[in-house]
Design a protein around this nucleic acid. Structure first.
Length: 470
RNA sequence: GGUCCUAUCGUCUAGAGGCCUAGGACGUGGCCCUCUCAAGGCUAAAACCGGGGUUCGAAUCCCCGUAGGACCGCCA
């Protein structure tokens, strides 16, 4: 039997970190077993589902490269099917009409909570035989006994059926509910493995009972531990960004997020870095941990830096454009881009940082840091700049190698250390005291701009000498 | 309150009864490299929740505590 897994989000918000990991694990498992990964949108709650959410989820999955093989299927388009199946169960007496109104149930629930009793439906309509002409919901008659299953991650889990309430299967408005739709769909779509968050463990026995009532065999279940925030409560907006697309906007590479998410809850010995192919090859439910994990932004940042570092400048160039644009730089078409990126790759943890760090390359005029200017743009450096300028203009090409040679010969003549020249040049070029290596910066910037900045800085340094002279 | 799940450095984790003086990674401190900043290399501090068993031997198996979490909707 070929493996079939699914990701079944409800479109009531964006694709969040937890959902993305669930989708990832489903995809990895399916690919690992040469099976199919299906996307199904659980939009049975018509009031809360939105088109924007559907799009947001699709966008998130696409960005992460979580490509599904079938779907998206929409539960809202299958209402007739669910109603039909519910009708069959009603015929067989496995469902019963419940005339309690939502308001009544709500107040009974509250009363039960107050009295310290389980807030469970009390089954009062179970044996009711009259049929008043009132709205009713269809409830599932939970049979006596116990229900247990072997979870691929957590092991055997058992429940007393007496602790499971008679759940509503069809609302009084005729729409089906989650637990029922999931079962009908997973069965009819031939899912072999249901991999989902462990917040669904308590739903599982209900669903197994429903599979039986419907005459289906239940799939294999695997419940993934939750992802927690830094305070060990369920990850939420309080802990920072939880939307997958927010990470795109902050300058993360999709592969970095995927790698991070894969290692949150799953491991393969001591390995930290995985290509997608390796993930597929090595993934197994057996190596998924049982306990919940805290989302660690620092480690994600490290991975992102790793992938930025190991990407080629050419790959990064198109990804960088939106970040430059955001900072008011129209970089498109600038032939220096790959060279510029190369100088900053191992200095940036995000694409956004990379864009910010590259700003000095694009500015019309250098924006000097006052302290740096005062310290390094001195009369001595003005003189050095002038000498350097002559040599740089004479260089056959503006490569790092030649630049280094030019610097060295000047330094040797003057008996100076590189630091004496590099820092002033850095300030002249960038306005500050921090930048990539001086030769790479020079080369990436391009001769014309570099020479202009050096000349400007020389003039500025002289002027400041005049002021000081008076 | 009930049901269910979980428990190794601050965090992610390795660990399938002796290979454990508990390993790796992120982060943190130190050193090295060095034109600044990074990157890189080396290095340090840092954990088996507690108590009982089982066993010649337990981080690993069992039980009981304790602590955290999830769920208990005509939401999904």
């Amino acid at each position: 039997m070929t493996v079939r897994t699914r990701f079944a989000p409800s479109p009531t918000g964006y694709l969040h970190i937890g959902g993305a990991r669930t989708a990832l694990f489903n995809l990895l498992f399916a690919r690992r077993h040469k099976g199919k990964f299906v996307l199904r949108v659980e939009d049975t709650d018509v009031a809360r589902s939105t088109q924007e959410s559907i799009q947001a989820i699709l966008d998130g999955m696409e960005w992460l490269g979580l490509n599904w093989d079938e779907g998206p299927f929409f539960q809202s388009k299958r209402f007739d099917e669910y109603r039909k199946r519910a009708g069959e169960l009603l015929e067989k007496g496995l469902l019963y009409r419940c005339y309690c109104t939502p308001d009544e149930l709500e107040s009974r629930r509250e009363a039960a909570m107050k009295a310290g009793r389980p807030p469970m439906y009390d089954g009062r309509c179970r044996e009711r035989t009259d049929q008043p002409g009132l709205p009713f919901a269809l409830r599932f008659r939970v049979p006596p006994g116990a229900t247990s299953f072997k979870d691929e991650i957590k092991g055997v889990i058992s429940f007393e059926n007496s602790t499971i309430e008679d759940l509503v299967v069809l609302r009084s408005d005729g729409t089906p509910t989650y637990n029922f739709c999931v079962v009908v769909d997973d069965a009819e779509m031939c899912m072999t493995h249901v991999i989902r968050g462990d917040d669904h463990i308590n739903n599982t026995p209900k669903q197994i009972l429903l599979y039986r009532a419907l005459g289906y065999e239940a799939p294999v279940f695997a419940h993934l531990p939750m992802i927690l925030g830094s305070d060990k409560t369920r990850l939420s907006k309080r802990h920072g960004a939880t939307s997958v697309m927010a990470y795109k906007e902050m300058g993360y590479l999709p592969h970095a997020l995927v790698n991070y998410l894969a290692r949150l809850g799953w491991s393969h010995g001591d390995q930290e870095i995985f290509s997608i192919e390796e993930l597929i090859e090595k993934f197994s439910l057996e190596s998924v941990g049982k306990s919940s994990g805290v989302f660690n932004p620092e480690k994600l940042l490290w991975l992102n830096q790793h992938y930025i570092k190991s990407s080629s400048p050419e790959e990064l160039t198109p990804l960088m454009l939106p970040f430059w644009k955001e900072l008011g730089v129209d970089a498109s078409g600038d032939p220096r881009l790959p060279a510029i990126i190369k100088t900053l790759q191992e200095r940036a943890r995000t694409l956004k940082e990379l864009a910010e760090g590259s700003l000095f390359y694009f500015r019309e005029t250098v924006d000097y840091d006052p302290k740096a200017r005062e310290k390094f743009l001195t009369p001595e450096s003005a003189e050095l700049f002038e000498e350097l300028l002559k040599r740089l203009s004479a260089l056959p090409s503006f490569t790092e190698k030649e630049l280094e040679a030019a610097f060295n010969s000047l330094l040797e003549e003057r008996g100076l250390k590189l630091g004496k020249l590099a820092q002033p040049v850095r300030v002249a070029l960038t306005g500050g005291t921090v930048s990539p290596g001086i030769f790479e910066t020079l080369s990436a910037m391009g001769r014309d701009i570099a020479i202009k900045r050096l000349a400007d800085a020389a003039a500025l340094a002289k002027r400041s000498a005049d002021h000081q002279g008076k």
